[in-house]
């Protein structure tokens, strides 16, 4: 019986994928890896099929936007969970804002369906191979992706509210 901990997961992943995992850290004890976005399908499948790890539960998919990081503006953050070993892993894949496309995780997890639609809806990230990639929470007619940082919370043309005194 091997000791399943963050180090073990990282070693297993690095043995298999090497350079494609280009960064890893452990904020608050949760192993986080940054991954080449083209490998996401392979990595999820590897973690799913791994005899010891059995990371077969996709907890969460969400997007994130860093406008100042050129070439890696948009990211998708996956939280996968091994219910057998009770250990979580966070996977981040970054992509340029001009062509934000990544493989869909729906081939493995049905739960990815709506979560990826939500990510598309908010950030405009295209999930290749998704069965029904369209907006989920916002109206279909919307022509921008509201969670991107360049969009202010409220309509910038409003003049009836002045929040400048409150640092907003």
């Amino acid at each position: 019986m091997v000791q399943i901990d963050n180090q073990y997961i990282l070693t297993e992943l690095q043995d298999k994928f090497g350079e494609r995992i280009y960064n890893s850290y452990e904020p608050y004890g949760l192993l986080t890896i940054e991954l080449d976005k083209n490998s996401i399908k392979e990595v999820l499948q590897f973690l799913y099929d791994h005899k010891e790890l059995q990371m077969q539960f996709l907890t969460d998919v969400c997007g994130i936007h860093y406008p100042q990081v050129v070439g890696k503006e948009l990211g998708v953050v996956y939280h996968v969970h091994s219910l057998i070993n009770n250990i979580r892993l966070r996977i981040k894949c970054f992509m340029p804002i001009e062509n934000p496309a990544i493989d869909s995780a729906t081939f493995l997890f049905s739960s990815a369906n709506w979560q990826e639609r939500e990510t598309f809806d908010f950030y405009g990230i295209i999930f290749i191979g998704h069965p029904n990639l369209k907006r989920i929470l916002n109206a279909d007619e919307m022509d921008y992706f509201p969670m991107r940082k360049e969009y202010p919370l409220e309509d910038g043309t409003r003049t009836d509210k002045d929040d400048s005194y409150f640092g907003r």
Partner: peptide, 19 residues
């Protein structure tokens, strides 16, 4: 930093992922 915390809500795992 970034943190994920989850609690058992009425319907299941209610998670907060904060950066």
């Amino acid at each position: 930093g970034e943190v994920y915390h989850s609690v058992e809500g009425g319907n299941g795992e209610l998670g907060f992922y904060m950066v």
